[in-house]
Design a protein around this nucleic acid. Structure first.
Lengths: 100, 100
DNA sequence: CTTGTGTTGACAAATATTGTCAAAGGTAAT
DNA sequence: ATTACCTTTGACAATATTTGTCAACACAAG
């Protein structure tokens, strides 16, 4: 299970960017990107999208993983996390049905 | 689909507490409780637990609904919310397997 | 009119998130 | 060993978000 941060680090290296170059390109500070890639600080969705664009890759999977991490972080110490996810899923499904 | 707030309002009324009494009993401000019951402000988990205790009911289902709401709120504008939930669920399941 | 009910809005206080900067440490080349 | 890169780290400031406090309001019952 590879975190979004590590995925983005790999992608950056494959695309041949140094941390600095990448940070400048997406208009953020090197320190922030460094910390995000290593999971020391949370990513913002905005940065994920900008990076995906910079590395010329599709962002969908990345965004999904990003959101998933966010949710899991919120539930990490919860006894009933799994149950909560199931309820949430059911409700989202229901909502989707009745909206179109 | 009844929100946690509305559930707690019903439970309070059944238990015969006024807003003020309940608020005092759980050591919070009336305004906060009023707003939470009506969904104008987010609940804290702590208050949910205190209220469940006050009303002498089992808190599990309430906590699950509370967490589910929290997660759904986070994903409410996300195109890939459902996919993210599925990924999160998969990972939680996986984690559960490998921990005991 | 007084008492008890819930609601509302303005504001302060406390927390959390995010951004900025400078310094440190590594590695490689010359 | 100094130059030129790179990444990491920590301290701090700036912002934003969440949470708590208070006073006033409106309504109904007695």
């Amino acid at each position: 299970m590879s975190t979004v941060g590590l995925q983005l680090r790999e992608l950056r290296e494959k695309a041949g960017f140094s941390l600095r170059k990448a940070a400048v390109a997406i208009d953020t500070d090197v320190a922030i990107l460094s910390k995000m890639e290593r999971g020391e600080r949370k990513f913002s969705k905005e940065l994920v999208l900008k990076l995906a664009e910079l590395y010329k890759i599709d962002s969908d999977k990345l965004v999904i993983d990003y959101l998933s991490e966010k949710v899991l972080y919120e539930l990490k110490d919860e006894e009933f996390g799994l149950e909560a996810l199931k309820v949430a899923e059911k409700q989202l499904n229901y909502k989707k049905q009745n909206e179109q």
